[in-house]
């Protein structure tokens, strides 16, 4: 069969979609929901890896030294920490250094602290990198036991909690996605079945006139694929807006790590989502054709 009239197939596919609008819309909504969850899953997975990299490059534990410790005592704390197992390297942060960091963090608002050295209200500290992040709890306790250590902050805790939560969301979205995938394929195959039934007479004529199997099937496959692609496109738009909002939210309220910028991950998302949409549509219509269209 020559593929010399693509519009013939497109026209028939569109006719099929508009013949039973309610079913088509239902199918598109299901595909959209499924691919939306697929997008959430993909974004969470990608970002968990991305954040993991950041954690490894980040100072994990910070030991704050008693306010009134002398500089000899501070140095003792530093050397005791550097001798602990699992410490890869550590840096001493003086009160003045801390003030610098604070100013840098405040940026434009830093002028309010002009003339202050930090000694009045900031603690000196030791930033500790470790070899094995899994054993950060043990290291944290060992550091806390050292004299003149006022308190130990371990961001790894927060990070791990966030990762645990995202893991749960990720697995839940994967599970829901698989269920919706099956539902979507089922609904697509049902819409295609209705299209086949509506064109029963035409298919019968086509068979007698000598239409090849692929010629008869092509508009229906195309109809399924279009449903998948439209669902995919809608879900991509929603994911685009949603992710932009999440990035902004993270920056404003939960600035512990960065998320992958949208532009960086967009081509990958568009590719996978559309491929998924096309496959869902094709599989859905293939099932309908195997069951309801004997050529």
């Amino acid at each position: 069969m020559r593929i010399n009239r693509p519009f013939y197939f497109l026209k028939n596919a569109l006719k099929g979609m508009t013949r039973n609008t309610e079913m088509t819309v239902t199918a598109i909504i299901t595909v959209t929901s499924c691919l939306l969850l697929f997008g959430v899953f993909m974004l969470l997975s990608a970002n968990i890896n991305f954040i993991g990299e950041q954690i490894r490059n980040q100072c994990q534990i910070q030991a704050f030294i008693e306010f009134d410790a002398t500089s000899e005592e501070e140095m003792l704390v530093y050397s005791q920490i550097s001798n602990l197992p699992n410490v890869s390297d550590c840096t001493f942060v003086s009160k003045a250094d801390a003030m610098e960091e604070y100013r840098a963090y405040l940026g434009a608002d830093a002028s309010a602290f002009d003339g202050l050295e930090g000694e009045e209200f900031l603690r000196s500290s030791v930033k500790v990198n470790m070899n094995d992040i899994e054993k950060s709890k043990e290291l944290e306790m060992a550091i806390a036991a050292i004299g003149n250590v006022a308190k130990v902050s371990n961001r790894q805790d927060v990070v791990q909690r966030v990762i645990d939560v995202t893991d749960v969301i990720r697995n839940a979205s994967l599970g829901a996605m698989i269920i919706l995938l099956l539902v979507a394929i089922f609904i697509i195959s049902n819409t295609i079945k209705l299209s086949v039934v509506a064109r029963k007479d035409e298919i019968h004529i086509m068979k007698y006139v000598g239409a090849t199997a692929s010629f008869v099937r092509r508009p229906f496959i195309l109809e399924g694929i279009l449903t998948g692609v439209i669902g995919g496109a809608i879900s991509l738009v929603l994911i685009g807006f949603g992710y932009t909002y999440v990035i902004k939210f993270m920056k404003d309220f939960l600035d512990i790590f960065q998320l992958i910028p949208l532009v960086q991950i967009l081509p990958f998302m568009v590719g996978t989502t559309l491929i998924f949409g096309v496959l869902m549509g094709a599989v859905g219509s293939a099932i309908a054709l195997v069951k309801h269209l004997k050529v």
């Binding site: 069969m1 009239r5 013939y8 007479d201 035409e202 004529i205 086509m206 006139v209 239409a211």
Partner: peptide, 23 residues
């Protein structure tokens, strides 16, 4: 007869040619 009701006389006959790939 088995004609397609939503197609004209012309289109019913043309369908047979479209199917076999006529220009």
């Amino acid at each position: 007869f088995r004609l397609l009701r939503d197609k004209t006389v012309y289109e019913n006959v043309a369908l047979a040619m479209e199917i076999v790939g006529a220009s």
